[in-house]
Amino acid sequence: MKFFDSTKFKRSIHYYWYISTILLYLSDMKRYVQYQSFVIEEFEANTWKHALHKHNHYELIYIKQGDGLHFIQNKSTLYCRGSLFLLGPEDDHYFDIRNTTRFIYVKFTDLHLYRGVQADHLYLQKLEYLIKSRETHLSVFLLREEGQLLIQNVFNTFSLIQHQVTVYEEVIRLQLFSIAVILQRNMPELRVTANRSQDMQALFCYIHKHIYCPAKLQAVEIAHHFNRTPDYIGPYFKRHVGITLRDYIRQYRNQLIKKRIESGSYRLKEIAAEFGLVDESHVLKLLRSENEGLV
Rank of each mutant, 00 (worst) to 15 (best):
F158Y: 13
S133K: 02
F155M: 00
R102Q: 13
S139V: 07
H53L: 02
Y94Q: 01
T157G: 08
G68V: 13
E135D: 12
I61G: 08
Y79Q: 12
Y123C: 11
Y168G: 02
H137T: 04
F177G: 08
H50I: 04
S133M: 07
L142T: 15
H53A: 02
H112R: 02
V140T: 11
S76Q: 08
S76N: 04
I104T: 15
V140Y: 05
H163F: 07
Y62Q: 00
T100D: 00
T100M: 01
L174E: 05
G116H: 05
K132Y: 01
L111P: 00
L124G: 14
H50Q: 01
E169Y: 04
S159Y: 14
F108K: 07
L122Q: 09
D120M: 10
L111D: 11
I97W: 02
F158Q: 14
K49Y: 00
A51V: 06
D120E: 12
V106C: 15
L149W: 00
I179G: 03
H70Q: 00
P89M: 03
A51F: 01
C80Q: 11
H121V: 12
V171Y: 08
T101E: 04
L87E: 01
K75P: 01
E135C: 05
Q152G: 06
E135K: 10
A119M: 13
T101Q: 03
T77I: 04
W48P: 15
Y94F: 15
Y94I: 01
R81S: 13
D92C: 10
L176S: 06
L60Q: 02
K132Q: 08
L113Q: 11
G116L: 08
Y58D: 04
S178Y: 04
I131F: 07
I161G: 05
F141V: 12
T109P: 14
L176V: 09
N56Q: 07
R81V: 13
Q125Y: 08
L142S: 14
H57A: 15
Q73R: 05
H93G: 06
G68K: 05
E169V: 14
L113H: 12
F177W: 04
R173K: 14
R102C: 12
T100Q: 05
E135I: 10
V167S: 04
L52W: 06
N153G: 05
H55Y: 02
L113S: 09
E169R: 10
R98K: 15
L130I: 11
I104D: 00
G68P: 02
G66T: 04
V106Q: 10
